[in-house]
Amino acid sequence: MGDSLLYFIEVTIGGLLAGVMYSLVALGFVLIFKASGIFNFAQGVMALFAALTLVGLMEKLGVPAWVAIVMTIGVMILLAWLIERLVLQHLVNQDPIILFMATIGLAYVLEGVGDLMWGSDVKALNVGLPDGAVDWMFDLGIYVTKLELVAAATAAALVAVLAVFFQRTRIGRALRAVADDHQAALSVGISLRTIWVIVWSVSGIVALVAGIMWGSSSGVQFSLSLIALKALPVLILGGFTSIPGAIIGGLIIGVGEKWAEIYLGDYIGHAIENWFAYVLALAFLLIRPQGLFGEKIIERV
């Protein structure tokens, strides 16, 4: 195999794995947006908050990683409950923009609370995930870390579990019903408040998974919340209400920005990675505003 082909494969795999992170964050967005029509600005900060909580619990309590993870899941569910209680419940029926502003507030609150409780220094996160290069691939001349593969496998497993949850369970069906038609869901006795707590919890758990993966490779620090900014172009690409869209959109952006960096960088300047996603999203907005998987929005009268 030629070197350039190997390099291409390595870059592509690297891009796909980076894309998995974007997908996870976008997935959290989509879940909340589908169920409540809220654009959750705080999704990225939730990943940071979850990772901070996890690191904090491991450090301060000295408990094993898996105990800390279970406790953090508990914290994320509690957080979802509090958000419903203190924020959403009081803002039902308000304009989407007001709810959006509320999530901006929420982002700052979470950031502040995370800082206050666990400090703002960069923390290493080690939950015992394997590290180092994957040997047989390394022998072939492709450098991929085990952590990256674990991250991808975990994300895939998470998506599979969510798919089963949505398709096969009573609560999952109720979630899809709410996403389809709030009024009708209310009319058959589905409690929107319960559903909101559930989706925010699920989103919180997805954020935790993203936080663990990102934190394990780059440390837990504020920049974690910035991957949320990459989630926006992913959403534009995949459509705001499509779960497969979030996943595929994330992968496309992840791979696309790596390719652009490597193959276009020499011609139009480097650091393309920083803006490529936004340009791609802009192009998409012009060509296919509903996203890859989103439905055409038809106003019915």
């Binding site: 899809r176 389809d180 038609d181 009024q183 869901a185 009319s187 006795g189």
Partner: peptide
């Protein structure tokens, strides 16, 4: 709904992305 009063809304309001079977099952939610 638990007490026994349920509304069928004007314009049906089925869950469009759920199958007919699933629509019926959502009625049993409570």
């Amino acid at each position: 709904v638990k007490r026994g009063v349920i509304q069928v809304m004007e314009g049906r309001h089925c869950f469009e992305h759920l199958t007919v079977d699933e629509n019926l099952l959502t009625g049993a939610y409570t």
